[in-house]
Design a protein around this nucleic acid. Sequence first.
DNA 1: ACTGAAAGATCACTAAC
DNA 2: GTTAGTGATCTTTCAGT
Lengths: 146, 146
Amino acid sequence: MDIIDAKILEVLKQNGRSTASDISKKVNLSIPAVSERIRKLEEANVIEQYTVKINREKMGYKLLAIVFVNIDHTANIQQFREEIILFPEVMECHHMAGEYDYMLKVLVEDTAQLEVFLSEKLKSIRGVQNSNTLIVLSTLTEKLNR
Amino acid sequence: MDIIDAKILEVLKQNGRSTASDISKKVNLSIPAVSERIRKLEEANVIEQYTVKINREKMGYKLLAIVFVNIDHTANIQQFREEIILFPEVMECHHMAGEYDYMLKVLVEDTAQLEVFLSEKLKSIRGVQNSNTLIVLSTLTEKLNR
DNA sequence: ACTGAAAGATCACTAAC
DNA sequence: GTTAGTGATCTTTCAGT
């Protein structure tokens, strides 16, 4: 991971479809050299995935919420961890230090779907003790990578 | 946005480098038909960006934190909004309803960098009244799109 | 570890339907 | 929307530095 690899990653962050020949011009390196570096970055799992950012509003998902969850510590925590990530509306699930056990980022179409998620889906998982939901009014920035 | 477009987006989510010919096999459509659909999805800004997911740990970023911030409502809020998104460690910034005004997702190498962010960078923005930081112990899932 | 050139494969595009 | 044909472009390979 030298400075040239960092430059290559920077180009790929901005456009995941950049070809080796595109990148070779931007980093002043020959095409085979760039190809080999990308191959190694993929092999080392530094590049985890090529993907695409899709417009949420255009897909009808207009409500983003943060849900903090507490788990009954006598419950089967592994079961919660397996089930929670299966819900399509759960974009993120983090195990937290502090007052709450888990923090979820939940993306839904509207408040009706949020209600279904909170009062039916989330509640249906055994061990979920209580939750605290915060609503996102707007998003100023949201990046995948630093 | 019919069911075929949805399938195309699904393929691109999993691999942003999929070619039109790759996709044409998976959705049972000819290559020019797929190309045209992708072109329209890009034009309509449904596809916002092709990008890449980079392994955070491999890049040395081992600490993820959630920072809630309150802004002095007599302060210049626009200034906060402009400055906060410029910090490289701020992955996300959401305007929130409820007790706190903004929620930040902050990615740093270690607690030392978090301390610098909280006590120097964040504090330096005029109007930042107080903050509350939560530490992420581990991440179960983190998706860009639903 | 990188360059440059050549080969082969693959892709996108266009035109006709 | 399909099929077929063309031209461009890309990656890979390899010999040389």
